[in-house]
Amino acid sequence: MKWPRYSEMLLSLWLVAAPWILSYGDSTIFRTINIAAAAGILLLDLLSVTLYKRYAHLGVLGIALGLLGHAYFAMPPEAAGTQNNVIVALLLLMFAILPTEATLPPPSWRELHKRD
């Protein structure tokens, strides 16, 4: 059950699609930032899910904070793109703190009780 990572991956796909669906305007920089953020999230989540790099997903926290800062300080305050990125960044912060195997005990506890 790696649902936090799959949720982040879905949010990253939305980040890529959002500029076209919500029409962010002509600025290609917003689109580039969203695509770069999505690529970073996918990479970190794939590392977490397939290669069992347990803490790789914490990098998503940095990407989410970057998206949040960019939306606050570099995007027009009332634009749909700004609101979208603020919401996506907050959702990413929520999922990124959760461990990959979210409903299982941590590996060290599993190991300790396996020995009992």
């Binding site: 609101q83 919401i87 907050l90 959702l91 929520m94 959760l98 979210a102 409903t103 299982l104 005990p105």
Partner: peptide, 18 residues
């Protein structure tokens, strides 16, 4: 919208963990 995110986080944090 902020309230919605806060309530969603309540639900998500309730479901995480053994």
């Amino acid at each position: 919208a902020l309230g919605a995110i806060a309530y969603l986080s309540d639900a998500v944090f309730a479901l995480a963990g053994s």
